[in-house]
Design a protein around this nucleic acid. Structure first.
Lengths: 224, 224
DNA sequence: GCGGCACTGGACATTTCTGTCTAGACAGGG
DNA sequence: CCCTGTCTAGACAGAAATGTCCAGTGCCGC
């Protein structure tokens, strides 16, 4: 998976670089994020990142005190950006629980809302670092609380709300882990039944149609 | 998590080592498996493994042609051992679908049947290696087919059987990924509701009692 | 034009890792 | 006792990585 963002020097919408500057701190961060996502935290190496950027390592040490400083910045970025959309969608107004779950599904299919690959990179990293594990656990608790509250708002008793929130959330994690890369149409074919299993209720056709339209737009590269 | 098996030289049930032998090929494999599970594939390093075993690296190169040879052996071991029990349990006779799912839960709670940590180590590894990814995908297809067939045997139509199999399987993967380490009693409290969500049917008290008894025995360290 | 500052390349030192090679240890068989 | 084969320690070579340090580059302000 290639997810490279253009370097500052190649992005016409950015201010031109001044002086002897070849890459910015953000360039280093972006290329590190790419490496983290595609190759895992062990491969976030200063030498290799410099190679990707086409520069020596020197400016890295100007911008960051150490490799650990860079890793800390990446984790901070993840914590600030990868949970909010899911929590917002779970909290959004919805007439029925199946419409509410469709809202949550929007995060699942739209990388601009929820970056699955980044999430997994951090999840892997958490297996090797207690500090990362704790950050991940914090965010997961927020996510599960939001989903549990969503089910509760729609009339499920506390035990059932908690259980269904877990089934919904952890199933998405497991499914994303499998990285099946199924065509969107194959995925959409199962949506009505998924909604039934997750909620115990049948979705209304309009709810499914709304989500289906959205998912197809995202699949075709349109932003929402 | 410490999962070390005794070295051959420390295991009274094993034949004594002869000649100048300090560690066996199996010792190297076992210590590599420990490192893979606790620290991930990048940390499976010959030098470090030798340190764990208290020997130099020399005998490693007698037993294996290279580090890759060792990694291949680990993956082979995983493929041969970590799917069979789950598939067998999904195929076992059961009077109801909820009893059948309780059979599958046995794999989930018994590390002797299904080694969750090993599974995750391989899952992480698969993110970095196409070859490992393919082995993992093969095993996952077997697992999902077995679960889908289980639901189908109990009268679910093909689409529903597939969907429920995926929800059951991927939810377990996601839950295990979270590594919550919940006390067994906390987990058991949710079992009836999990069974209802996964199957759409209410379990019979005897089914839950059977599984609960089993899970407590496993938690207390008894083997089945 | 000069000095200062923010970057930059690249040399240096150190550490860790893999694989190769050689001599040594030990048991078994003749 | 000697030979053979299976292990074993440890030296060696080469590669890759991090952090430190110093001289060079280019812009800005005076």
């Amino acid at each position: 998976m290639v997810r490279a963002r253009p370097l500052h020097r190649d992005d016409p919408s950015k201010e031109p670089l001044i002086g002897n500057v070849k890459v910015t701190r953000e360039d280093w961060l972006n290329v590190a994020l790419d490496a983290l996502v595609s190759d895992g935290v062990e491969q976030v190496k200063v030498l290799a990142l410099g190679d990707r950027l086409g520069v020596s390592r020197s400016s890295f040490y100007w911008y960051f005190t150490s490799r650990q400083d860079l890793l800390d910045a990446l984790l901070d970025h993840w914590e600030k950006t990868n949970t909010a959309a899911l929590v917002d969608l779970a909290g959004a107004e919805a007439a029925t629980i199946t419409a509410a779950v469709c809202n949550v599904f929007r995060a699942v299919v739209n990388p601009a809302l929820f970056d699955i690959a980044f999430d997994f990179a951090v999840r892997d990293w958490a297996r090797r670092s207690g500090a990362v594990r704790r950050v991940l656990d914090r965010s997961e608790a927020l996510r599960l609380d939001a989903l549990t509250a969503m089910f509760a708002r729609h009339g499920y008793d506390p035990l059932e709300a908690l259980t269904r929130a877990r089934v919904l959330y952890y199933m998405q994690i497991g499914y994303n882990d499998a990285d099946l890369r199924e065509p969107v149409e194959d995925r959409l074919r199962l949506v009505p039944m998924y909604l039934y299993v997750f909620t115990g209720r049948h979705a209304q056709p309009a709810e499914i149609a709304d989500f289906t339209t959205y998912a197809r737009r995202i699949d075709q590269g349109e932003t929402s």
